[in-house]
Design a binder for these strands. Sequence first.
DNA 1: CGACTCCTTGACAGCGTTCAACAGTAGTGG
DNA 2: CCACTACTGTTGAACGCTGTCAAGGAGTCG
Lengths: 216, 216
Amino acid sequence: MLVKGDAIASELNALAREMAFCGELRYRGNTKIFGEAEPAEYLYQIVKGAVRTYKLLSDGRRQIRAFHVPGDIFGVETGEVHRFTAEAIIDTTVRLANRGRSGADHDALETNKLLKLVTLNLQHAENQMMLLGRKNSLEKVAAFLIEMDGRLTTTGALTLPMGRRDIADYLGLTLETVSRELSRLKSLGILNFKGKKTQQRKIVLLDRSRLAELDP
Amino acid sequence: MLVKGDAIASELNALAREMAFCGELRYRGNTKIFGEAEPAEYLYQIVKGAVRTYKLLSDGRRQIRAFHVPGDIFGVETGEVHRFTAEAIIDTTVRLANRGRSGADHDALETNKLLKLVTLNLQHAENQMMLLGRKNSLEKVAAFLIEMDGRLTTTGALTLPMGRRDIADYLGLTLETVSRELSRLKSLGILNFKGKKTQQRKIVLLDRSRLAELDP
DNA sequence: CGACTCCTTGACAGCGTTCAACAGTAGTGG
DNA sequence: CCACTACTGTTGAACGCTGTCAAGGAGTCG
């Protein structure tokens, strides 16, 4: 069975507590943190805010690998350069951790932590492959909500930091389809919007069990 | 830019040469090697044959993670159990390598090798996410041929061990669509079939540069 | 020979995309 | 304060890519 997002996230948090961080940086919304193929010098842990990591095709098609929220670690690379771009979605604060000296081999403890992090990334990617290749649009949106529910629900409401376009590029859909399926879930009584008429990024999940049934 | 399959494969081969293998097993085509959630005790390296690794949804929808051909290592798990099923596609011989003692921490050298293997898996998964989420059917089939061309071309011809159904479940398509796009590539003069009328698994690539242009 | 598997091909349907219009909110500057 | 613009999100209508359903050919095996 698939491991859900929250299980992965909680293990990430446990790992993060043991790491040695060495600095802090702030980014405004929609600004680049690092780009694909740039040298990878640090690990990043989010203190506040949200980040998307993605790859692009030459014609601009975008596939978002993952969303990262407070507590998450990203930029885990074992090679010399980043394999994807990272951007702050909203105003974001990150802590930096040094990667082990490149070239020289790391000490065993550090490599073990790195192994754990890369493995969690791989698990997430494998689950996302299943979603992208074999789920329909309603199932994709349901899975997305379940993942985010497990990671950033605070006060009973789910406040999405990202817009419809980002969600679409995460799920392999268009923003219109995402919007339609969210409306469908609302009309089914499974969720409700809370914010202003547009910018509907505050969602209240009314029926988690029926939502879960939509994600096979 | 995306790392192509052959780059990953060649690094795998380099790694494999340093590993300590401890046994050999044979499997007939379409037989299980290990199942999802079963205890993970070994690493496997293919000597001869071909293997698919995949996940299933409860209703039977299948997503193939990867195809493995001679030289490849699969079953790289850091947890206690396998996250996916592995099946021999055709008659297959594999070598077994012990995973480090679970629980106790492995020596640094071994962990480093494991890290390399998991990272290569992650790279492949990230590229596959781009393919599944954002490429159309022709681009998917082209990418598949390019990947396989880099891994199992021997005598100028590309002999695919897997059937259309497997290819479809790897690319997030149906077998009919795979068949149609292969026919299209043939009618475009980019490839030719070599085998008997059905069982068209021998493919000759006539124009690799035009094929590459189809994969953005 | 008949049953079976694998693949191809055609016709059609439908899911998701594309194109478009519109609404609500925020920011800017007169 | 209000116009004007920009941005985000929703919704409708039409299209088209891919899936579904079906038929048929070619090869294999008992």
